[in-house]
């Protein structure tokens, strides 16, 4: 009755696995980029406040 069930299973597993990986990778990429942006922005504000205090002196 369930002839060809292995094909159906393989198709669904491939589909699912692809998106599990894709979502995981995209989220990780977003996280890493967010972190890098935050670090750079912090560096910017630090250096600008630093130069400001220099000038004030």
């Amino acid at each position: 009755m369930l002839i060809g069930i292995e094909y159906v299973v393989v198709a669904y597993v491939i589909w699912l696995f692809t998106f599990v990986c894709y979502i995981f990778m995209t989220k990780r990429r977003l996280k890493i980029t967010n972190r890098a942006v935050a670090a750079l922005e912090e560096k910017f504000t630090e250096s600008s406040t630093h130069s400001m205090t220099e000038k004030n002196k």
């Binding site: 979502i23 995209t26 989220k27 990429r29 977003l30 980029t33 967010n34 890098a36 942006v37 750079l40």
Partner: peptide, 12 residues
């Protein structure tokens, strides 16, 4: 989700 990532990459 992908668009959000793309925006951040361009900002970076």
């Amino acid at each position: 989700l992908r668009f959000q990532t793309e925006k951040r990459i361009d900002t970076l």
